[in-house]
C-alpha cells in the first residue's frame, strides 16, 4: 500500500512539474468537441441529440493522447527495470501508475465536461449523468490504454498502433457512457447504464493490472 502511494505521489509530482502536457490533453478534448457544431451546423435540436456522444468520443480520443508517455520514459531510463526487480509487485506498480495517469489526464476532462454540455444545450440533470458516466468510464479507458501502451513499448510504430489495438476494445465503454445520458434524456433513467459502467470498472480494476504487468514483462524481457 505504501508503495502504491509512493509511486502515485512520484508520478503526480512529475506531472505537476510538466504542466503543459496536462493542458494539451484538456485543450485537445475541448477542441475536438467544439469541431462538431462547426461541421454539422449549429441547430440546437441536433446538438442536444449528439452532445453526449460527441463529448464521449472526444474523451475517448483525448485519453489516447498521453498513453505514449505512460511507460516510455520509465522504459528508457531503466526505472521500469528497477520496478520489475524491486519487491513491489509489478501489477501494483502498474495500477499506481495508471491511477496517477487517470488523475492527471481524465479528471480534468470530467471537470471540463459540464462546460461542453452547456455548449450543447444539455439540461443540468443530463450534465450530471454525463459527468457521472465519465467518472466511471474514463478509468476503464485508462486501464485499456495502459495495456496497449505496455504491449507497444519501445516500438517504432507504437504511437499509431495503440489506437488500433485499444479503440475496438473501448467500444462497450463508449456505448454504455453515451447510452446512459441518452436513456436519461429519453426519460428511461440512467441507473442501469451507470450500474453496468460501475460493474465494468470493478472488473477492470481487478483484472487489468495483471494483464498490463504481463504485457510489460513481454515487452521488456
Amino acid at each position: 500500500m505504501n508503495a502504491l502511494v509512493a509511486i502515485m505521489r512520484f508520478e503526480l509530482l512529475l506531472a505537476w512539474r510538466r504542466k503543459s502536457a496536462l493542458a494539451t490533453t484538456l485543450g485537445f478534448f475541448v477542441i475536438v468537441a467544439s469541431l462538431f457544431p462547426l461541421g454539422l451546423g449549429a441547430d440546437p435540436q441536433l446538438l442536444r441529440l449528439i452532445g453526449s456522444g460527441v463529448v464521449w468520443v472526444a474523451a475517448l480520443l483525448a485519453t489516447l493522447l498521453g498513453l505514449a508517455r505512460l511507460f516510455a520514459a520509465d522504459h528508457e531510463d531503466g526505472t521500469l527495470e528497477q520496478l520489475r526487480l524491486s519487491c513491489v509487485p509489478l501489477p501494483l506498480a502498474a495500477l499506481a501508475k495508471i491511477g496517477a495517469h487517470w488523475l492527471v489526464t481524465a479528471v480534468p476532462l470530467c471537470l471540463a465536461a459540464p462546460i461542453l454540455g452547456l455548449q450543447y444545450g444539455l439540461s443540468a440533470s443530463a450534465i450530471g449523468v454525463l459527468v457521472a458516466s465519465l467518472v466511471l468510464g474514463t478509468p476503464v479507458l485508462c486501464l485499456l490504454g495502459a495495456m496497449g501502451a505496455a504491449l507497444t513499448l519501445g516500438l517504432r510504430a507504437g504511437g499509431v498502433l495503440v489506437p488500433v489495438l485499444v479503440l475496438p476494445l473501448e467500444v462497450p465503454v463508449l456505448i454504455m457512457g453515451a447510452g446512459s445520458v441518452e436513456a436519461h434524456m429519453n426519460g428511461l433513467g440512467a441507473g442501469p447504464w451507470l450500474s453496468l459502467l460501475a460493474a465494468l470498472l470493478i472488473v477492470f480494476v481487478l483484472a487489468t493490472p495483471w494483464v498490463v504487468a504481463f504485457a510489460l514483462r513481454i515487452s521488456s524481457e
Binding site: 504491449l151 510504430a157 507504437g158 498502433l161 488500433v164 489495438l165
Partner: peptide, 23 residues
C-alpha cells in the same frame, strides 16, 4: 487488423508471438 498490425510492427519474433497471443 490490430493483431496483424502488432505482429508486423515487432521485429523480435519471441516478443511478437507473446504480444500477439495476449491480444
Amino acid at each position: 487488423l490490430g493483431f496483424m498490425a502488432l505482429q508486423s510492427a515487432i521485429d523480435d519474433t519471441r516478443r511478437a508471438d507473446r504480444a500477439g497471443a495476449l491480444v
